[in-house]
């Protein structure tokens, strides 16, 4: 038994990368979902727009967001590398192959599901992230009467918007912000986009029902006492609750 190869060039090392980046992206989903639940608040987007500013300007969050972009890219690259190697491992396929007899459809088609999610991600980023970062969203001003707590809002022009600001004068709090909420509202009037989002969330559900527990198996965590909990979380939290709540957002804006 001689000196062995570096860990990341091995099959198990590559799987480890897939597993860790995948789990990190799963953690992100929880944060992203909780933040976005503010879209359901009927406040003309005051809470959501404040949150959007915080998420794009608080340094630790920015650091994590770059890790996130890196994770998506690494997850995709390694998926391609591993898939190519797997294709090469069986140069001549079976004339007759009964995959459903021994494995679930989603476990065999993670690449297709992942591609749907990647297309969605590109669309999603261009819909909101790109527009928010390139001054392509509308602007809004909220005026809250601090004595009565009543908030009014109006769209303002780019000329009247200098930067995100919260000022209080004469008992009125004035918040000026980029109106990402309005952008969301606008985007989800497009039925094609709503359909893409809902389909992508279905793909995400099936991807994670296999992916979450698969990631634990890859890092070697398959303990009789806890694996049931891992599978439960994988199916119900990441496969059902999270995708349904995300899918509810475009549907809510489309039908309200």
């Amino acid at each position: 038994m001689s000196k062995s190869k570096p860990v990341l060039s091995s099959s198990i090392g590559k799987k480890l990368i897939m597993s860790l980046t995948g789990l990190f992206l799963c953690m992100f989903l929880i944060v992203h979902l909780i933040g976005n639940l503010q879209l359901f608040k009927d406040d003309a987007g005051l809470a959501f727009n404040k949150y959007a500013y915080f998420m794009t300007h608080f340094t630790p969050i920015k650091v994590v967001s770059y890790l996130l972009y890196a994770s998506v890219i690494i997850h995709v690259i390694y998926a391609i590398v591993i898939s190519l190697k797997n294709k090469a491992a069986r140069p001549i396929g079976y004339a007759s192959y009964d995959g459903s007899a021994n494995s679930k459809w989603n476990s065999r088609n993670m690449g297709i599901l992942g591609t749907v999610i990647l297309v969605f991600l590109a669309t999603h980023m261009s819909n909101f992230w790109w527009k928010y970062h390139n001054d392509q969203t509308p602007y809004i001003e909220y005026r809250t009467d601090l004595s009565t707590g009543v908030t009014t809002h109006q769209e303002i022009q780019a000329a009247d918007f200098h930067d995100y600001s919260i000022v209080s004068e004469n008992g009125v709090e004035i918040v000026k912000a980029r109106d990402l909420y309005k952008q969301v509202d606008y985007a989800f009037k497009n039925v094609g986009l709503v359909a893409l989002y809902v389909i992508a969330m279905a793909a995400l559900a099936f991807h994670l029902i296999h992916g979450f527990q698969s990631a634990f198996q890859t890092v070697g965590f398959n303990h009789k006492r806890y694996i049931g909990l891992v599978q439960f979380i994988g199916v119900w939290v990441f496969g059902v609750i999270i995708p349904i709540l995300f899918a509810a957002m475009p549907l809510y804006f489309y039908f309200r």
Binding site: M1, S4, S10, S11, K85, N86, A89, R108, T218
Partner: peptide, 28 residues
């Protein structure tokens, strides 16, 4: 620990694919 590394290295060198945890092996 040498065994785990040596056998996995040889497995990779033989050109077998990577596990994606489909469970087909266990079933068959």
């Amino acid at each position: 620990y040498e065994r785990a590394q040596a056998m996995v290295d040889q497995m990779d060198a033989e050109g077998f694919g990577n596990c994606t945890n489909t469970g087909a092996c266990e079933a068959e």
